[in-house]
Amino acid sequence: MNYHWDWGIFFKSTGIGQEIYLHWFITGLGWTVALSLSGWLIAMLLGTVLGVLRTLPQRSLSAIGTAYVNLFRNVPLLVQLFVWYFIVPDYLPEPIQTWFKQGLKPEISGFISVVACLGLFTAARVCEQVRTGIQALPRGQINAALALGLNPWKTYRHVLLPQAFRIIIPPLTSEFLNIFKNSSVASLIGLMDLLAQTKQTAEFTANLFEAFTLATLIYFTLNMSLMLMMRWLEKRVKVPGLISLGGK
């Protein structure tokens, strides 16, 4: 078995213009980051709304949150991606459908499908964290806010959510890291994210060990930097004199 080790491969030309293989990895990382951050934005917004719904006393509203979580947590990510990519576009209302399928570049419509998929998938997880965070707060906090005349919306906005989010930073961090890892499914519908670029490099150069080693190093570094960033955030928003908010 002959394998030609060549760690310099990343700096060799791809044969396309001035490009070297390292460029592929950088573009891929760009796609991965863009997909993940866009998905995270949706996940946080939708997940917070759903998490709040699940803590409301109105049965019908909290049932919406529960149904959402059950549905999106029990169907594999890849199936969800296929639904967003293959099925949903066919059911868009007419002018939008043609625009989505023909007006947009394939990588843009693919990007939208993956972001929708990642966002809605992760929203179910964020929802559960937000709910847990709110429920960990002492019941008296709601009473105190209401007794001051705050309406329910302002009670959540100024009293419950700021505290709940501080409690749930650690589990949210791990969901945040997960969305970056999960974004690699984009490679399965032809988007050139980090994983797809790695595979392509491996196939073009036959230096698959080097290619995959670099990819894992990039994911590993990305993961570590995001984690440090979240730790920094956690310290920044820490309230003086408070060791743990979820004590009671």
Binding site: K181, L188, T198, A202, F209, F212, T216, Y219
Partner: peptide
């Protein structure tokens, strides 16, 4: 825990 499962599956398939 810091790399995607899909990467591991693909990588192992090759190596």
């Amino acid at each position: 825990r810091s790399i995607p499962l899909l990467l591991v599956i693909t990588w192992f398939y090759f190596i």
